[in-house]
Design a protein around this nucleic acid. Structure first.
Lengths: 113, 113
DNA sequence: TTAATTCATTCATATATTCAAATATTATTA
DNA sequence: TAATAATATTTGAATATATGAATGAATTAA
């Protein structure tokens, strides 16, 4: 799970509005599928598909409680991801004026001759 | 850029190995396209397409220096994202045994009757 | 002006994703 | 054992994405 490649794959899986909503909800605690049904506005089979994707990617897992499947978060990287998804970003980055050398030894802003 | 929706869209754009590589490189400083060509193993037109995507998403921008286009990072959320992509995660999350109530008032682990 | 450099755009094709609809599975309850 | 509840799987159609190939600016150098 530590190589970049694996994390990019996780990113790809997470990068869907419904799946982010599911993960955000799971970050508050264990939920069964019908809990999720209550607050997502999509069909149960569709929810199930998203859960399957997330589970096969190792992002979530479940245990069985009676006839409920109780899903929970399993992946610490995703927790950090959720955190920055919730964070406020008010400004853009400072411009590049201060920055390093490009290929041929020019500095940004400096005109090559 | 602050609503969740926009960030999920950014995630979707970033979630590609080549684009992560580009962004990681840009996080070190301004680079022109031919700098990127040197260390990515894909064709220039393909690099250009990825740059175009990233630019249209507001993630990067460029200034012109002679005949070079010097690209730089523009989005602070993406900086945080790159940071957690580089971070080490050695353990899984603790299990759910400690956790909140599911829909019908059962506790995880507790059997419903 | 011509040629070279640097980068972008367009197009075609292969592949992947999304979602709905129908159906299946599994555990519990009657 | 049959019925029900909770959830999963499969299939298929629409759409989106990825990438290579070819081509097209724009700028600069000769």
């Amino acid at each position: 799970m530590n190589e970049l490649k694996g994390k990019v794959e996780i990113l790809r899986i997470v990068a869907h509005p419904v799946r982010v909503a599911i993960l955000d909800e799971l970050s508050k605690g264990v939920k069964c599928v019908s809990d999720l049904e209550d607050f997502l506005e999509i069909s149960q089979p569709n929810i199930s598909q998203h859960l399957g994707l997330l589970r096969r990617a190792g992002i979530i897992d479940y245990f069985i409680d009676g006839r409920l499947r109780c899903y929970f978060l399993k992946n610490p990287f995703v927790l950090d991801l959720l955190e920055i998804l919730r964070k406020e970003y008010d400004r853009e980055l400072p411009g590049p004026e201060c920055c390093p050398v490009t290929k041929k030894g020019t500095y940004p802003g400096e005109r090559r001759r």
